[in-house]
């Protein structure tokens, strides 16, 4: 354990942080110190350790419990969004790498268009149509994940398609679909896994941004973003209300970034 930490500190710290966060998020489904939405107006704005582990907010809700439940809301939305984005994006990238031609032009320009629109903006538009909530947040974040994975997959797959072992497979009479599944996908899987991890951090950040603007989960479900937004009013009296969710967001984003970087170093030492 210590040796592994010394050899790959980035990877180990990233893995530890993200595992811890995921464990806390899962735990919150079964147990939190207090019910995260329970209001105790007499205990409002208590500093950490005076009431509960991390104090209470303006309604007397337990901050530690809210952070735990927020971790679940944040991570579940991020995981779902990245899963959808990675699957759709990778599929698009693989198809385009086979067909190329005008389809490649079309898809790449479409990616540019999606990149040009900030995810917060598309979430606002989407929210206006179908209402704010978990589904809106997932779709909005997934939408801007798709072009990331489509581009990555296309670039990586095109490289594989020039390899002699793919030519050999063509020379055996393999269909493009089979070549994609047997030869291309296994050889670009590393890169996709690394990107998934890095995008998870970005997705958490975006989700926090959305719920900060009130475009995420509806109240009273606790989210890190809204905790941050609510804390602004009380920053003079209760700075921990802003600092704690802020630290949670920073920890999650850093954790996934480090994990992604560490995985990349481990799986593909050349791309450093």
């Amino acid at each position: 354990m210590i040796r592994a930490l010394r050899r790959r500190p980035v990877l180990m710290i990233g893995a530890f942080t993200t595992t811890l966060l995921t464990a806390v998020a899962l735990l919150s489904l079964f147990w939190t110190p207090f019910p995260p939405t329970k209001i105790q107006i007499l205990q409002r704005l208590k500093p950490p350790l005076e009431q509960g582990l991390l104090g209470t907010d303006q309604f007397g809700r337990d901050v530690a419990s809210m952070l735990m439940a927020g971790a679940w809301n944040s991570l579940s939305i991020a995981f779902a969004a990245v899963l959808i984005g990675a699957t759709v994006g990778t599929a698009i990238g693989l198809v385009v790498s086979v067909r190329r031609g005008w389809l490649e032009m079309l898809v790449m320009r479409a990616c540019d268009v999606i990149f040009a629109v900030p995810p917060i903006l598309s979430a606002m538009v989407l929210g206006a149509f179908i209402g704010a909530g978990r589904f809106t947040a997932i779709i909005a974040i997934a939408t801007f994940m798709v072009p990331v994975f489509a581009r990555l997959t296309l670039a990586a797959a095109l490289q594989i398609w020039t390899r002699a072992y793919v030519h050999a497979a063509i020379g055996m009479g393999r269909s493009p679909l089979k070549i994609t599944v047997v030869h291309v996908l296994p050889n670009i899987a590393n890169q996709i896994v690394v990107q998934v991890t890095i995008q998870l951090g970005l997705a958490i950040l975006t989700e926090a941004g959305l719920s900060y603007l009130g475009l995420g989960l509806a109240p009273p479900a606790p989210t890190w973003g809204r905790m941050l937004a609510d804390a602004q009013t009380f920053f003079g009296q209760a700075p921990w209300l802003a600092l704690l969710p802020g630290m949670a967001i920073a920890l999650a984003v850093t954790g996934f970034s480090l994990l992604g970087d560490g995985l990349r170093d481990m799986l593909d030492p050349r791309s450093r």
Partner: peptide, 16 residues
Amino acid sequence: YRTVQMVFQDPYGSLH
């Protein structure tokens, strides 16, 4: 492809 097969220049790249 049953009739015609190809052997490539680079033995390092031509095997999966």
